[in-house]
């Protein structure tokens, strides 16, 4: 290989200085720290019953959640969340791949999809209670219905956007249907699928909480409502904090998955920006 053909080896060396690393970390944590400090001091000595001092909320956190509530309230919520999210993912990606590949099917189903998408999943709860009762299934289904739409619609778009030349290549080299699905369709649409999955995750978290506000026996949302009804304000606020923390943890896990599965995509985009 000639030297002229050698291209861009590593441009990774630039972000190496310790000072740069420190600044990076600071950029991430600076605003949260400012907000927490502001909250702490502005609420200190608060006499307002509904807005207790942050100190009280933090003190209430440990006994409220770490004395068994993780198992009895938090884990059931998380399992229902993951269950509904998984169902939405499988159906959304599977159906999306199918609809994205077929203009006929798409034209056929589009009006129905538009209609169904316009229905807020929360209004389905009373109806679902009639069919599924008030157990975990109903909540899982509500979460799945809500998270389905962003995943489904983004997958359809992603599959439609797969490069024509790449499709031709797959046909010319006679990839098997299984390989076409896994190597061409799924990977080709993965940037949009991940976008849909990220939106779906936030919807799923919201619906997890809301679904627990109807006729529930356990769950984070249920517990927060219970505290609210019994005027246990610091405990109620600690539940809201817990939801925030759960959201951050899930989003970090998601980011990790994204950076692994879309490594090629970020590299490709960077090389396109850099030019050849």
């Amino acid at each position: 290989m000639s030297a002229t053909e050698l291209v861009r080896t590593a441009r990774m060396k630039r972000d190496s200085g310790i000072g740069k690393q420190v600044r990076k970390v600071l950029a991430v944590v600076a605003l949260p720290i400012v907000l927490i400090v502001t909250w702490w001091f502005s609420s200190a000595g608060s006499q307002n019953f509904f807005f207790p001092p942050l100190e009280q909320i933090v003190t209430a956190f440990q006994p409220t959640w770490f004395t068994g509530a993780i198992e009895t309230e938090v884990l059931p919520s998380v399992w229902r969340l993951l269950g509904g999210y998984l169902v939405a993912g499988v159906i959304g990606i599977g159906l999306g791949a199918l609809l994205g590949s077929s203009p006929v099917l798409r034209a056929f189903t589009e009006p129905a999809l538009e209609f169904l998408r316009a229905i807020p999943p929360t209004v389905m709860i009373p109806i679902l209670i009639l069919f599924l009762g008030i157990g975990a299934e109903m909540r899982v289904v509500v979460i799945a219905i809500g998270a389905l739409w962003p995943i489904l619609l983004n997958t359809i778009e992603g599959v439609r956007a797969i490069d024509e030349v790449l499709r031709d290549t797959a046909r010319v080299y006679r990839l098997t249907p299984m390989m076409r699905f896994s190597t061409l369709i799924l990977r080709g649409a993965s940037p949009q699928i991940v976008t849909g999955a990220r939106q779906g995750l936030s919807v799923a978290i919201i619906l997890m909480v809301i679904s627990e506000m109807f006729a529930a026996q356990d769950g984070i949302g249920f517990t927060i409502i219970r505290f609210q009804k019994s005027y246990a304000m610091p405990e109620m606020w600690s539940g809201i904090l817990l939801l925030g923390v759960l959201g951050i943890v899930l989003s970090l896990i998601f980011k990790l998955f994204e950076s692994i599965s879309l490594k090629w995509y970020f590299g490709l985009r960077q090389s396109q920006r850099g030019g050849n």
Binding site: D163, E164, V165, L166, D168, T169, R171, V172, Y173, R174, T183, L184, R187, G188, S190, W264, Y265, L268
Partner: peptide, 22 residues
């Protein structure tokens, strides 16, 4: 009638005919 066995094609758009995730 469809891409036959044993036929290879090299397209003009090389960047678009290689799978960027492989």
């Amino acid at each position: 009638v469809e891409p036959p066995k044993g036929m290879a094609v090299v397209f003009q758009e090389y960047a678009r005919s290689l799978f960027p995730w492989l």
